[in-house]
């Protein structure tokens, strides 16, 4: 009988399985194992893994930390909004603020040096999307997420917001310069 009638044999679970089906099931089981193992494999041998480091925070605490770094390492300001460009030493903790509708401050980082980049929102949800290198993470209020980043290309990088955050969403841009 077809799929719209009860199985013809009441004891259908004892019917043999089609040979082609069995081969395919074997292939997909092996493939499923490979897919699963690739992720831990990349944690061991790959260079692009999130640190999983994150802290509870509040807008006030997070803004204070960001302000402290800005006060210490600002080298110039840019644009009508006088946005500070922060040039920290390698290995430093730096704080990027996502807010309606701006990434603040800008950074100037050195190629092949490593920085502890903190990202948090102080209002709604945002999306950190680094272009043109294309690296994307979710940014939430209340969570201070730490990315240990090592830029590998020089030039101007733009941070686009890729989580919808209201009517000014499409104007929310930031900048990270990478220099030699």
């Amino acid at each position: 009988m077809t799929s719209i009638s009860p199985p013809a044999r009441k004891i259908w679970w004892k019917e043999p399985i089609e040979k082609g089906e069995l081969i395919w099931i074997a292939v997909v089981v092996v493939w499923g194992i490979i897919l699963t193992l690739m992720m831990p494999f990349w944690h061991i041998y790959g260079d692009q893994n999130l640190s999983d480091e994150a802290y509870r925070t509040t807008p006030e605490i997070y803004m204070a930390k960001a302000q402290a770094v800005v006060d210490k390492y600002t080298v110039r300001t840019e644009g009508d909004m006088q946005i500070p460009v922060v040039k920290p030493p390698a290995g430093e903790d730096i704080y990027l603020v996502g807010r309606l509708w701006q990434w603040w401050p800008y950074f100037e980082l050195k190629k092949d040096e490593t920085y502890r980049l903190h990202i948090a929102s102080v209002d709604w949800q945002h999306g950190f999307s680094l272009q043109p290198t294309n690296l994307n993470v979710q940014v939430l209020p209340g969570y201070d997420m730490v990315l240990t980043v090592t830029p590998n290309k020089t030039g101007k990088h733009t941070i686009v917001c890729n989580e919808y955050c209201g009517i000014g969403h499409h104007n929310m841009l930031g900048t990270i310069y990478v220099v030699e």
Binding site: T36, V137, L140
Partner: peptide, 26 residues
């Protein structure tokens, strides 16, 4: 890519412990 979740949690739960649902659809 959300903050506050561990890689172990993400790997286990995305692979549904072995991509069993993907296998079902295949």
């Amino acid at each position: 890519v959300d903050p506050g979740l561990s890689s172990e949690w993400k790997i286990f739960n995305t692979s549904y412990a072995m991509y069993l649902a993907v296998m079902a659809s295949m």
